[in-house]
Design a protein around this nucleic acid. Structure first.
Length: 205
DNA sequence: CGACCGATTGACT
DNA sequence: GTCAATCGGTCGG
């Protein structure tokens, strides 16, 4: 798995079986994992500190609630792929597809803690017209996409490939996991399907 | 076709 | 706290 000459090998990629589970389980278990992007000689790594689960046809807040369309097709496919959508005419948000094909579960990545490549993340944000405020670098679903340059073309990326993937990161004790209502939705507000790391400064709210 | 609005962000009364 | 930006998806006529 490690490519021979690497002096500080990354942990192993999460297997397909990690993603092929209910969205709520995947969401909770993604806390503490590392999102990795390799592009050219740049390496970006962020610890996942805030996510939200979306449960396909069972969930009126999910883009998949009313069935498969061209936009949400990735969610209906195999688990372990990236679903990226464009919203508010200017922002992208990234989800990890979970469940089994047809179920359309997904986990929205809402905030990361920069682990490696922060200076490149800052350049990526500026390139997108984003502000230089480092405290907001990877805090919020659209900001983290700017920092990692996740846009329309990243929709459908296989997370078992070599460009964008997720690895084992840091173990998260149960006592650090906070469950709360999802942000910015107008339906199913009562569902506590948002998971975050207690006390982490990168959590969006 | 037109109207409405969004899993957001940043600027500002 | 409020609100505009900006455009593609969705739905009604």
């Amino acid at each position: 798995m490690n490519s021979g000459s690497s002096r500080t090998p990354l942990p192993q990629k999460l297997p397909r079986s990690f993603y092929a589970r209910p969205a709520l389980r995947v969401a909770r278990d993604l806390l503490g994992k590392y999102l990795v992007r390799k592009s050219g000689r740049h390496l970006l790594v962020g610890k996942i500190v805030e996510v939200e689960a979306y449960q396909g046809s069972l969930d009126p807040a999910s883009h998949a609630y009313r069935g498969k369309t061209a936009r949400n097709a990735v969610m209906f496919g195999e688990a372990g792929y990236l679903y990226v959508y464009f919203t508010y005419g200017m922002h992208y948000c990234a989800n990890v597809v979970s469940e089994s094909p047809g179920k359309a579960g997904a986990v929205l990545l809402r905030a990361l803690e920069p682990i490696h490549g922060a200076s490149q993340m800052i350049r990526n944000r500026k390139r997108n017209g984003g502000k230089a405020n480092e405290a907001l670098l990877t805090r919020g679903p659209a900001r983290l996409c700017q920092a990692f340059r996740i846009e329309r073309r990243e929709n459908g990326t296989d997370l078992l490939g070599d460009e964008i993937f997720i690895t084992e990161g840091e173990a998260v004790p149960r006592s650090l996991v906070v469950r709360s209502p999802r942000i910015g939705i107008r339906v199913a507000k009562e569902k506590k399907w948002r998971f975050s790391l207690k006390g982490n400064r990168w959590v969006s709210a």
